[in-house]
């Protein structure tokens, strides 16, 4: 094609065209997200590296907190309140519930602060913003895996051998992550505009720790199970206990349905709200 001016040094087929307009939803958003997957990896790697570089105890911190919480809950719920453990050593019972709880609460904490915490990137570079909350999950996942290893050691110590139910565990891990991500997407986009939501998260998590069956079993309260099932975490925590304690915990289908529905609503809505507001992040932040 004869044209005036300097020849284009790039073959026409390789040249991509980008159109920027008000209110134009990026057509290539999901393709872009895939193209930027390496950035996702780098941001996750940065968070992990910084976390363990600055702390002298490093991975030790990931263990200290659950060990102390397990000891306290065993004492309060197992000894003082004398709740039945269903034949499982009480510390093992608590730790099996603490695992999903910590995965959820660390993930929620990380995602809900992620956008404001990376404001310097948002105001200077383009990339699909969804990468930020996604990459913030890495620290929570690594901490979780460390505690999972601790759980394995402790349960073997108490003589519990892992059953075939362990194979189902990835499903419940995914559910816990998706639930945290769904809520986190709402919170992180709302925090950009209303910093109040920063104070909401610690409060929610504090309440959640006691409302959810972390220190006790749902099997102990057959009359309250229906009410407890309204908490989307109940199904996930019960699921974890069912996997980790070799079936010494009943699975309540109602609570599982609530969990899956809550995830669908929170994650669907969270994605929609995040995508809707992310275009203004740089202007508001």
């Amino acid at each position: 094609m004869p044209e005036a001016g300097p020849p284009t040094p790039f073959p026409a087929a390789a040249v991509q065209e980008l159109v920027i307009e008000a209110g134009r939803t990026e057509r290539h958003y999901w393709a872009d997200l895939w193209r930027y997957r390496e950035l996702l990896g780098f941001l996750a790697w940065r968070d992990l590296k910084v976390r363990y570089k600055q702390a002298v105890l490093g991975a030790g911190w990931a263990l200290i907190q659950p060990i102390i919480t397990t000891a306290i809950f065993t004492f309060v719920f197992g000894r003082l309140a004398g709740m039945p453990s269903g034949g499982v050593p009480y510390p093992v019972l608590v730790l099996a519930g603490l695992l999903p709880w910590q995965l959820f609460s660390n993930s929620l904490n990380g995602t809900s602060n992620s956008v404001v915490g990376n404001s310097h990137l948002i105001s200077k570079v383009y990339f699909p913003r969804l990468i930020i909350p996604l990459s913030s999950l890495a620290v929570a996942i690594v901490d979780f895996l460390i505690v999972l290893a601790l759980f394995l050691v402790i349960s073997l110590w108490f003589g519990t051998v892992p059953g075939w139910q362990w194979l189902v565990l990835p499903v419940f891990i995914l559910l816990a992550l998706l639930l945290a991500l769904g809520a986190g997407l709402w919170l992180t986009s709302l925090t950009v505009k209303y910093r109040d939501f920063r104070y909401l998260v610690p409060f929610l998590l504090q309440v959640g720790l006691f409302v959810s069956p972390v220190g006790y079993r749902t099997d102990n309260f057959p009359n309250w199970r229906a009410l407890m099932a309204l908490n989307p975490l109940t199904g996930i925590i019960d699921g974890f206990r069912w996997c980790l304690l070799g079936g010494a915990q009943q699975l309540d289908p109602r609570s599982l349905v609530v969990s899956v529905l809550a995830i669908a609503v929170l994650l669907g809505g969270g994605l929609w709200y995040f995508r809707k507001t992310e275009r203004q992040f740089a202007d508001v932040i």
Binding site: F10, E17, L18, V19, A22, Y126, Q280
Partner: peptide, 17 residues
Amino acid sequence: ILSRITEPTTGSVRLRG
């Protein structure tokens, strides 16, 4: 705007490459 960090209120940009 050209870097896609913020959106224009009106108007359009076409970038080739």
